[in-house]
Design a protein around this nucleic acid. Structure first.
Lengths: 254, 254
DNA sequence: GACAATTAAATGTCAGACAATTCAAAAGTT
DNA sequence: AACTTTTGAATTGTCTGACATTTAATTGTC
């Protein structure tokens, strides 16, 4: 077969678009081998570097993988959660950092989405979900925890909560949203007192989920959302005060 | 500066990874120009095709754009919602189609996430959100509407609902989830009776949002989720019956 | 000073070659 | 005959050098 391309833009873009269309439409099935680069050159009437640039575009989107050697070539990838995940997070993270999204907006979205899985989590939670949550809560109570470790444990807690809903699509969507928020959350430093409050809220959530009391869990989650906002507000105030009182020399250093 | 690369895998992958890291870390700022391809060749000690393949990888992820001519080159992209959107949808759509996600699972996730924005939408809806929703409802009542047009209007209705929450991050997340579901939704054919039911549910939702009654809106949305599931169930049954009663000739045609 | 032609720099494309990798078949050995 | 080794072919990865195309700045002319 011969391909007819849009006559808009660069050749490698057109070719990549053509092949992507075939994959999305199902003309090319998972694990099916694409024609070799040489054949693609003939079909599209372009040189090999051009074909290769097109293939690299597709590879960057995890749509294909390539293998060297005899019986090698480019193969259609099965798009898995594991592969889509980091991609999604990179995009979301950049979106947040490049578009002046306020902490309030991001926080609101994150907790709103997480709230979506609470009824399902309450209905379907299994014993190991609860024990994972409690283990993370216990970890969060340790005294010698760095802020990073505390945040990581926090992420794990919420991941377990989401996983209790037992819906892979939901897990994928929410987990990527939560992780994309992480850089913003890391700007907060948690005092010992803050941690005590958060641990108590987490405990209340775990209790509610265990008792399959979704109303209480939802309510407590919004409590956590509010508290997170006040923490961010405090952190901002502290930063501003520091900035104002800092002598010029120190400010230059930063 | 000279770069040190991981010695794992292909060169173009390593180079792309290196540059991506600089963008994500903020070393390269938005709209900043990357070194020319020739300079990159020198820095990484590779040939131009290799550098170009790396740049194409980044371009495929919308991280950079290229411009020809004098004072052209590769520039760091501002990742905008508009650009991230179709990318996200493509990925999500492929995830759904390639991983044997049941309609039930996808539907559950979609409505759960949409539910997340209801309280915000009820609190913040403006007159034009309501009028958009009502306009789409009216359109859905027209008799000579194709299934595709009905679905498109349905998407618009839910988009307006989400937009009423007035949170760009939330809009981005939910809208992409809803759109990714569209191929699955398009498998359902809506009888006139189905449409009447859906229109009435939509009306109830719009009414509740207008009255800022989030509890009622949430309840009605879950009603819609249930109804959608029964429709999908019907569609599946009908397809099976057709398959069983079809004579061989017709089955070959399809 | 305004407009047109030239120039330079950068990406886009091409052609051909060689290197590296992998699998399969042929050859050789036991 | 069964197993091991060698060879070869196919394919992607990389390099080199060249030319085409596009665009902005420069130069020249009126």
């Amino acid at each position: 077969m011969r391909y007819a391309l849009d006559h808009t833009g660069d050749l490698s873009v057109q070719i990549a678009h053509e092949i992507r269309g075939a994959i999305v439409a199902g003309t090319l099935l998972v694990d099916q081998r694409l024609p070799s680069e040489k054949e693609l050159c003939d079909r599209f009437s372009v040189s090999r570097p051009t074909v290769r640039e097109a293939l690299k575009r597709l590879a960057a989107q995890n749509l294909i993988r390539t293998q060297r050697g005899a019986s090698g070539g480019a193969f259609v990838n099965r798009v898995s959660y594991e592969q889509a995940y980091p991609q999604q997070i990179t995009t979301s993270t950049l979106l947040l950092s490049m578009n002046d999204i306020s902490f309030e907006t991001a926080c609101e979205a994150r907790f709103a989405i997480e709230r979506a899985c609470i009824p399902l989590a309450a209905a379907r939670r299994m014993p190991d979900h609860i024990s994972t949550m409690r283990a993370e809560i216990q970890r969060q109570g340790l005294n010698d925890l760095t802020d990073e470790s505390f945040c990581a444990s926090d992420v794990n807690f919420h991941k377990a909560l989401v996983q209790a809903a037992d819906n892979p699509v939901l897990t994928y969507q929410i987990a990527s949203a939560v992780e994309a928020m992480q850089p913003l959350m890391n700007m907060i430093t948690f005092t010992q007192r803050d941690r005590v409050v958060i641990v108590s809220i987490h405990t209340k959530i775990a209790d509610a989920i265990e008792k399959r009391d979704h109303a209480s869990a939802e309510h407590t989650l919004s409590e956590l959302a509010d508290y997170t906002l006040t923490l961010a507000d405090q952190a901002r105030t502290i930063r501003q005060v520091k900035l104002a009182t800092n002598d010029p020399q120190k400010r230059c250093k930063s």
